[in-house]
Design a binder for these strands. Sequence first.
DNA 1: GGCTTAAGTGTACAGGTGTACGCTGGATTG
DNA 2: CAATCCAGCGTACACCTGTACACTTAAGCC
Lengths: 202, 202
Amino acid sequence: MAGARALQKEKTRQAIIDAALMHLSAEHSFASLSLREVAREAGIAPTSFYRHFNDMDELGLTLVDESGLTLRELMRKARQRIEKNGSVINTSVETFMEFVERNPNIFRLLLRERSGTSVKFREAVAREVNHFKDELTEYLMAESEYSQEFAYTLAEGLVTLVFNAGAEALDLNPIEREKLKQRTILQLRFITFGAASEGKKA
Amino acid sequence: MAGARALQKEKTRQAIIDAALMHLSAEHSFASLSLREVAREAGIAPTSFYRHFNDMDELGLTLVDESGLTLRELMRKARQRIEKNGSVINTSVETFMEFVERNPNIFRLLLRERSGTSVKFREAVAREVNHFKDELTEYLMAESEYSQEFAYTLAEGLVTLVFNAGAEALDLNPIEREKLKQRTILQLRFITFGAASEGKKA
DNA sequence: GGCTTAAGTGTACAGGTGTACGCTGGATTG
DNA sequence: CAATCCAGCGTACACCTGTACACTTAAGCC
């Protein structure tokens, strides 16, 4: 009753997903990936694709969701590191940059679809990014005594800066990347400190 | 000797550029625009396109350059407003948001190609954004007594936050847009203030 | 053990793409 | 005025795309 049939189907589905992710790179976006291409790479007939997804959009949304999952795993790791290490800002930047370095194409997917041509895609990415903002907001509220609104504004700024640094890191060599990392850390310190100074009133 | 021939050519060239810009929108990117499509819209035969551009990439880079030009005009206006108004942060955000509202598709072009699949495109957009960073760096150095490096780090953070707010504004209604604007202003104040506190040492 | 279900196949078609090639007709030039 | 140039055209070709449709074949089920 293991469902050898369903098992094989799942395997093929994964092959499709893997094939799609494989073709993502600096010079190939998801938008420029065709159904036939992904079917070819996955080792199935073009029409077999439809047994798993209604169209490429559905596959794309699945990819975004999977990427978000990877991203959330990262968050969990960051939290653990912070508890041991202590330095919130440094650790966060460090962890995020590590993720970008290790999963450049997954990050590229999120980055591109964030400003892509599909509302659904944009919403899906926004949802993932919001997880970060919301979680960080709660952390800030617990740590300091900021109001919800105030903490959210700060969290939004922090996430924006880190996310953007990740995007810029993609095209840099290790040396420039390190410099970027240091600048980002400084920027985060500034905004955090500035908020702390004004935040007392809130 | 006005060159009726060259004049007509320039007119057609503009028609091509206009046609391309016209097709840019929330749901149509430059990447998904075909040579034939743009030729159709411009009212010329597909093959006539080659009299003006070697390929779509060349047209795309021209568009990015033109968009950068529009953006720099904006910068000039912002500077004028600041001189009269005084409030640097508010005026900057206000001006930039106005630009995004009035030229959403030009901004979308820059936004998308910034993370696009062509190195040349990415570099071209980076060049445009760097104009902002550099100019702001100089302004900050003149205003305060920051070192070049320190001022650049701050400028980078400021530009990132504003640019990103513009991107997010694209999908928002006027009410949410206004809220976003206010949050952005706050974020800029934080980072500026935080830098000022630490900047004395630099 | 036979009937059903569904994953995967292969063929076929209509429509889109970039671009090579040879031509035309009016502006430019000498 | 005659010769040249060149923006724009039309045809043609090879290639790629999504997907409709009828099929095989192996697993699932009673």
